[in-house]
Amino acid sequence: MSAADIELVEVHKHYRKGRIDIPALDGLSLTINAGALVAIMGPSGSGKSTLLHLVGGLDSPTSGAVRVGEAQLARMSERELTAWRSRHVGFIFQMYHLVPVLTAAQNIELPLLLFHMPASERRRRVDTALEVVGLTDRRDHRPSQLSGGQEQRVAIARAIVTDPDVLLADEPTGDLDAKTSEEILNLLSLLHADFGKTIVMVTHDPRAAAYGQRVLHLDKGVLDRDEVNPRVAQAVRV
């Protein structure tokens, strides 16, 4: 039952495009408790994905501190970040990003290939992850043989198979219809409630955001509003 808290202090992330300096994040500070389910909203270009990438150690801030659990990400080298990611973060993307030539089970197994682990152990973990997302009967299907919702569930299984401290989801329902979105959001809620994962989810959809205990609104790289969702905040049970 591992989970980590997240702390950002005065984080700046600037992109340089030729002479133009784009401040994707402009002095952002925030704290997310361990085991929280937080939604992040904001207009396009407000820096939501950038924030997620920094928390996930995919990128380093221009200045400021990013802490996830024990790890001070801003001080880590790219190599250290890579190793850290494999252990502590699970990513879920809007476009699922499954490897098309691999079956569902093989996709889920992929992150485990980085660890010294007997095949039987990998299989056990994959089976458990498949069971959690309810796709045991689709383990040998290729992504092209799955629906969008099923693909996203495989992606979620892949994200949790290493039992990471944080799950980072960038518009996980952005490509799905309302009913499938709901299934995915319920699954994320379950991971949050039952396994105590810290989950940060970027979304444009207010109905998706309603699943968060807290909704952070970004605008132009700074925190615009920080709302607590009382209804969900209390219902931390499944």
């Binding site: 790219e78 190599r79 890579t82 990513f91 490897v99 992929l110 980085l114």
Partner: peptide
């Protein structure tokens, strides 16, 4: 490209 990026995101060393 995006597939290779996923490998890296998952923690596969470059």
């Amino acid at each position: 490209t995006s597939e290779l990026a996923v490998f890296k995101a998952l923690g596969f060393p470059p």
